Computed example of a mutant assay.
Amino acid sequence: MLYQVTDWDDAYANGIHIPRGDDFPARWEAEASAFRATARRQDLGRGDLFLPEGTAKGLAIFIHGGFWMRTSPATWSHLAAGPLVQGWAVAMPGYTLAPKARISQMTREAAEAISLAAERVPGPLTITGHSAGGHLAARMICDDGTLPNAVAARIRCCLPISPLSDLRPMMRTAMNDTLAIDDTEAATESPALLTPRSGIPITTWVGAAERPEFIRQARLLADIWAGLGAATDCVIEPGLHHFDIIDGLTRPDSPLTRTLLA
Rank of each mutant, 00 (worst) to 15 (best):
Y3E: 11
V5I: 07
D7V: 09
D7T: 08
D7W: 13
A11K: 01
Y12E: 01
I16G: 07
I16A: 14
R20S: 07
R20M: 03
D22G: 11
F24Q: 06
P25W: 00
A26K: 11
A26Q: 13
A26P: 13
A32G: 15
A32M: 08
S33W: 07
A34K: 06
F35C: 11
Q42T: 10
D48W: 11
L49K: 12
L49V: 05
K57Y: 03
G58Q: 04
G65C: 01
H78V: 07
A80I: 02
G82V: 03
G82H: 05
G82M: 03
L84M: 10
Q86I: 00
G87Q: 11
V90E: 03
M92A: 12
A101N: 08
S104R: 12
M106Y: 05
A110V: 13
A110Y: 00
A111N: 02
I114A: 05
R120C: 03
L125H: 05
G129Q: 09
S131P: 11
S131H: 05
G133N: 07
H135L: 03
A138Y: 15
M140G: 01
I141M: 13
T146M: 14
L147F: 12
P148E: 06
P148A: 10
N149L: 15
V151Q: 04
A152Q: 13
L159D: 01
L164P: 06
S165C: 10
M170V: 15
M171S: 14
T173G: 14
D177Q: 15
L179P: 00
A180Y: 00
I181S: 11
A187F: 04
E189K: 06
A192L: 05
L194D: 00
L194E: 01
R197Q: 07
I202R: 06
W205S: 05
E210V: 02
R216P: 07
W225A: 03
A226N: 04
G227D: 01
G229R: 14
A231E: 10
C234Q: 12
V235A: 09
P238L: 13
I245Y: 02
I246Q: 08
D247G: 10
T250H: 06
R258T: 11
